[in-house]
Design a protein around this nucleic acid. Structure first.
Length: 892
RNA sequence: GGGCGAUUAGCUCAGUUGGUUAGAGCGCUUCCUUUACACGGAAGAGGUCUCAGGUUCGAGCCCUGAAUCGCCCACCA
């Protein structure tokens, strides 16, 4: 048993964190106790990639989730946080392929089956890295419900979803232009092609008119695609080119005759107003090709080299081909010019290769009908974004949604549940829940499954219900769906959030969550995103090793009101606060002489001093504010509320004030009361802090529990202790006001002391406090010992009608004045100047208020309270002015 | 091209429906090793709230415009 006396002088985060996390997990505290009479609080984790390692974005994201989970759990609500990992198709495949390269193997030499086995092996060995790291952060996920997007249950959800959508006519297969990554050799969705502005060039090339010496000049940024041109297009109303209508041009280098077509989509103002059309390599051209029934010539292989359709350029890499084509054209009269041209080019979000618009046969989900319901759900208030402005991002994406390309030409992922009959060909498509054994059309048994796998997001979008057992009607699904909140970053609103909402509505007729909380992006100081490739990463695990998880969590929350620009120094805030908590605890513990305390001291006020009542009142206010802040997802405000209370109210004032009391004998009743208050305030503070800083608070709480016999410590863990509930009966407003007066007196004396060059421990001979009422005089006298101790004063005079002595300087408050005497001439001169400045300042303020009060508009239109308030302020300032002016006369 | 956000102390940012003399952390200055904590304590300096108009009795907050920065979206051949 840890005893109070044994509390280590230094907080050793590592040991304590490991100890408590292990106990929490093995005791099953993360697993909710289902209570049918209570509405549960549920979050599903944004599943990190199985290839991932914890970065600061995860640290922030999961800290916020854990705060919500832990605070709700303490409120006695059955609370579930579902953890899991995403199989991250392309990313994982890339990682494993890279490892194979070291062994001089490729996935093709291994074959599909062996390769997938390799990936599973890799997953088993390395895939749990991030899951372990989440534990180090303190995340109170229910690990007994941990899921993986490729596990059998989730695979079943994926299959069910695909089949349903297919049956509903919402999945189709077709030849379209998609984004193709020549390095990964797979299709990508529009969201996976990241557009970036690049410096490129616009090449002007003459296309000679057939049977004529005339020519048309086209402008293109991708000259290599001309190998696949099957037309040139002009705007039908473009007067310049009217005479070319119906004619043909000869494609240079290839010498193919291609038509001149008329199309409204041509912008006459761009380039020459003439555009070359490559239907197989450009989405616009593809559409135009459909309208004009143009041939589609694929001039590129999947690896980005020129295909045999490219004639003399066959085999060249696409960028090499571009250079060669430009070079070859330059040798003819057909090359006009090259001008610099900035344009936006898609890049593979996984490997950053420039993607190619590429014609191929892919599977798509028809998104419009799904988007419709998702928009409706938002409009009817079933979905709320926080902060609200993200609603607009969500809405405009859904309004402009395009079909989702879901097939990927990789091997790691959910293979598409589609079979083709070898004898009937690709047109006979079997899409079934059970693997088919024969072709329903011809009875043939030679079936072939579509080799493609599904986009990883096709499993992620089912996450809020697939993790709970859907499509089975499990009790988990019944009890925990829909979930309560989703916490994520802005980057995946499209990828994930919007699609989950669509899936929830489509498959369960209910939004998957009600609140979407979007937190900031973590960046490095200077503004870049934190990324490995930039080498500017601050590793959260290193920070945890060095400062502790609590420090990291607290700092992140304090910083994350908006996007976070992180630096090492900023993280010290949390470290320092952890240290403060630990040391305050040590102080409290070593001050305790008893082992039984009044654990709700506020209900026994007769034993309490005004100072006790003040700290209890502040504590109650803190509990109330924190609860409100957390309810509104205002994590920064919650954190700064408790930070301020604990550090500045509790440590700086209360602990210092009670030190003299704690030097009294054990039997002293005031001492006894103070001990109770200390235990009470400390205990409740750490309960308030627990969602933010789970480890240090558990350690402190358990030490209290081990040494104090009380109902309060009945729970086995602070995790299971109750969330403090604010109660006006625990507040002492009048005493609190008095303590604030007293604090002002102390601050005033200290200010004067420091201003007049007196050392902190140098005794001040005389302090005089002039009050405006006998009541206040008595109140101040109650604090005479504290004032003497705090301000180091040998003689203290308090009263309403005291005579100020010449040579004393003072500070003026609303209803009292503090004077200090025994000063040097130099100090007096300085203080005289300061008093003059103060007078000028107050005169200015009074003039301002006067102007306001004389403004008839203000008096007639402002609320009565505001007018009265202004009048009161004026009166107060004027009184202070009188005092300061009188003070001025005392300097002589 | 469209949209969104930001602009408040030296730095990083709060400031919730308009209403006292605009706050915090870090940094800075002065003092203090007083037995919980120097990862600390006390005191202090520091702001024409980007600019220009407007609404209002009253604007950091609402409206219009401008500038600068950042982010997102987009089929700029």
């Amino acid at each position: 048993m840890t005893t109070f006396r044994e509390l280590a002088p230094k907080y050793s985060a590592k040991e304590i964190e490991e100890k408590w996390y292990h106990i929490w997990e093995t005791s099953g505290y993360f697993t909710p106790v289902v209570d049918p009479n209570k509405k549960p609080f549920v979050i599903v984790i944004p599943p990190p990639n199985v290839t991932g390692v914890l970065h600061m974005g995860h640290a922030l994201n999961n800290t916020i989730q854990d705060i919500l989970i832990r605070s709700n759990r303490m409120k006695g609500i059955p609370t579930l946080w579902v953890p899991g990992v995403d199989h991250a198709g392309i990313a994982t495949q890339n990682v494993v392929e890279k490892r194979l390269v070291k062994e001089k193997k490729t996935r093709h030499t291994l074959g599909r089956e062996k390769f997938v086995e390799e990936v599973w092996k890799w997953k088993d060995e390395h895939g749990s890295t991030i899951v372990k790291q989440l534990r180090r952060l303190g995340a109170s996920c229910d690990w007994s419900r941990e899921r993986f997007t490729m596990d059998s249950g989730l695979s079943k959800s994926v299959r069910e979803t695909f089949v349903r959508l297919y049956e509903q006519g919402l999945i189709y297969r077709g030849d379209y232009i998609i984004n193709w990554c020549p390095r990964c050799q797979t299709a990508l969705s529009d969201e996976e092609a990241v557009h970036r502005d690049l410096k490129g060039a616009l090449y002007y090339i003459k296309y000679p008119l057939e049977h004529s010496s005339e020519h048309l000049t086209v402008a293109t940024t991708r000259p290599e695609t001309m190998l696949g041109d099957t037309a040139v297009a002009i705007h039908p109303k473009d007067e310049r080119y009217k005479s070319f209508h119906g004619k043909k041009v000869i494609l240079p280098l290839i010498n193919r005759s291609i038509p001149i077509i008329l199309d409204d989509s041509v912008d006459p103002d761009f380039g020459t107003g003439i555009v070359k059309i490559t239907p197989a390599h450009d989405p616009n051209d593809f559409e135009m090709g459909k309208r004009h029934s143009l041939e589609r010539i694929k001039i590129m292989n999947p690896d980005g080299t020129i295909s045999k359709e490219g004639g003399p350029y066959e085999g060249l890499d696409r960028f090499e081909a571009r250079k060669r084509i430009v070079h070859d054209l330059e040798k003819t009269e057909l090359f006009v010019k090259r001008v610099d041209h900035g344009h936006s080019v898609g890049h593979c979000y996984r490997c950053d290769t420039v993607v190619e618009p590429y014609l191929s046969k892919q599977w798509f989900v028809r998104m419009k009908p799904l988007a419709q319901r998702a928009l409706q759900a938002q409009a009817s208030g079933q979905i709320k974004f926080l902060p609200e402005r993200w609603t607009k991002v969500y809405v405009s994406w859904l309004e402009n949604i395009r079909d989702w390309c879901i097939s990927r030409q990789i091997w790691w992922g959910h293979q598409i549940p589609v079979w083709y009959c070898k004898s009937c060909g690709d047109e006979s498509v079997m899409v079934t829940r059970q693997d088919p054994v024969h072709c329903p059309a011809c009875g043939g048994k030679e079936l072939r499954q579509d080799p493609d796998v599904l986009d990883t997001w096709f499993s992620s979008w089912l996450w809020p219900f697939s993790t709970l057992g859907w499509p089975e009607k499990t009790s988990d699904l019944n009890y925990f769906y829909p979930t309560s909140a989703l916490v994520t970053a802005q980057e995946i609103i499209f990828f994930w959030v919007a699609r989950m909402i669509m899936a929830g509505l489509q498959f369960l007729d209910h939004v998957p969550f009600h609140t979407v909380f979007i937190h900031g992006t973590v960046r490095v100081e200077g503004g870049q995103k934190m990324s490995k490739s930039l080498g500017n990463v601050i590793d959260p695990i290193e920070v945890i090793d060095e400062m502790g998880a609590d420090a990291l969590r607290f700092s992140m929350v304090m910083l994350a009101a908006t996007d976070v620009y992180l630096s090492r120094e900023k993280l010290e805030m949390g470290r320092n606060f952890t240290n403060k908590i630990w040391n305050a605890t040590r102080f409290v513990f070593r001050s305790l002489e008893h082992d039984e305390f009044i654990l709700s001291p506020a209900s026994n006020p007769k034993f309490l001093s005004d100072i006790d009542k003040w700290i209890l009142t502040e504590l109650d206010r803190t509990a109330q504010k924190m609860t409100e802040n957390l309810n509104q997802f205002r994590f920064f405000d919650a954190a700064s509320t408790i930070y301020h209370f604990f550090w500045h109210s509790f440590c700086d004032w209360y602990l210092e004030l009670v030190k003299p009391v704690l030097s009294r004998p054990k039997e002293d009743s005031a001492r006894r009361a103070v001990e109770s208050v200390l235990v009470h305030v400390l205990e409740e503070s750490i309960r308030l802090l627990h969602p933010l800083m789970p480890f240090v608070t558990e350690e402190v709480w358990q030490t209290l529990k081990a040494n104090i016999r009380s109902e309060l410590f009945k729970p086995k863990s602070i995790m299971l202790a109750s969330w403090p509930i604010s109660n006006s009966l625990r507040r002492f407003e009048k005493e609190t006001l008095m303590v604030e007066r007293f604090q002002n007196v102390v601050i005033g004396i200290r200010d004067l002391r420091s201003r007049l060059g007196l050392k902190p421990l140098e005794l001040i001979q005389k302090v005089m406090i002039i009050t405006k009422s006998n009541e206040l005089t008595q109140a101040i006298l109650n604090f005479r010992n504290e004032i003497a101790a705090f301000a180091h004063v040998s003689e203290l005079a308090v009263g309403e009608n005291l005579k100020r002595e010449s040579g004393m300087v003072g500070r003026v408050y609303e209803d009292l004045q503090v004077f200090v005497g025994g000063l040097s001439k130099e100090s007096l001169n300085q203080e005289r100047e300061r008093t003059r400045e103060k007078i000028t300042e107050l005169e200015g303020l009074v003039r301002e208020i006067d102007a306001r009060l004389q403004n008839s508009g203000f008096v007639s239109k402002a609320p009565v309270e505001v007018v009265e308030q202004e009048q009161a302020r004026k009166k107060e300032f004027e009184e202070r002015l009188v005092s300061y002016r009188e003070n001025l006369t005392l300097f002589s």
